[in-house]
């Protein structure tokens, strides 16, 4: 998904670090990585540690980190739009021409911002100020870290073969952090393969009403 961008920018001291938030590990994420054959590092995060550290609630989410290890853009949606909600046939997964155009606009604007930062560094308007980074990164609440605790304990029990014991922890993680689509969809998928993109997913998306699934990014 990011190979073109990486090929274009890799000689400018730029790296893509892709992290699969996937409790299914290699068995789930592996086939996608093998099919795409990316030349940038693709890491597998079965416990969703990166989501916890960076307060990510959905995929794709991204953080920009400069050469000194400083965050210059905190967690935000990485070039995705809500077009799929209204512009996609839910049976055939076909997206309308209008939907494709909307998707392209969002992604192109985001990629152009990344190109600008890669070229200009701190001078790029897309590397936001320290205060702005702080303003945009709220960090977790007590409920959120407790949700993470439920997810981690459930995920451990699940991988140990205690599926039934894991499920109540998963449902509590979803309740404590309702904004986390990654907890919701990951735990649904562990409950029942296919559930993450099935009718439960679509009813949850529809229940958003006017609210965003992918909140628009202020570039």
């Amino acid at each position: 998904m990011w190979q073109g961008l990486y090929d274009e920018l890799k000689d400018r001291s730029f790296v893509v670090l892709a992290v699969a938030l996937d409790s299914g590990g290699v068995a789930s994420a592996g086939q996608w990585i093998l099919a795409a054959k990316p030349t940038y590092p693709c890491l597998i995060d079965e416990r969703h540690v990166v989501a916890e550290l960076y307060s990510m609630v959905n995929v794709p989410s991204a953080v920009w980190i400069d050469e000194a290890g400083r965050i210059v853009r905190p967690t935000e949606v990485a070039g995705a739009s809500d077009a799929f909600r209204t512009q996609m046939d839910r049976k055939t997964k076909q997206v309308s021409a209008e939907g494709i155009a909307d998707r392209q606009r969002t992604r192109t604007a985001y990629l152009n911002a990344l190109r600008d930062w890669t070229a200009k560094g701190a001078e790029s308007p897309f590397a936001v100020s320290r205060d702005e980074v702080r303003r945009r990164s709220s960090g977790p609440s007590d409920e959120h870290v407790f949700a993470a605790a439920h997810f981690r304990l459930g995920e451990y029990l699940y991988t140990q073969g205690h599926r039934e014991a894991a499920l109540p922890y998963f449902s509590e993680a979803r309740r404590l952090h309702p904004a986390s689509w990654s907890y919701r969809r990951q735990t649904w998928e562990l409950e029942e393969p296919g559930k993450a993109g099935g009718p439960d997913f679509w009813s949850a998306v529809d229940a958003l009403g006017d609210r965003s699934y992918y909140p628009p990014v202020t570039l």
Binding site: L17, D45, E67, Q186
Partner: peptide, 29 residues
């Protein structure tokens, strides 16, 4: 953080210090 790739090699964010890092999440679900 420290995480493995597909071959089990460990990577930490600190390994990439000195580069601009685009840290991006995805998932199979």
């Amino acid at each position: 953080f420290r995480l493995p790739d597909l071959e089990g090699r460990m990577h930490s964010l600190a390994n990439y210090r000195g580069k601009k890092i685009f840290l991006v999440s995805w998932a199979s679900w």
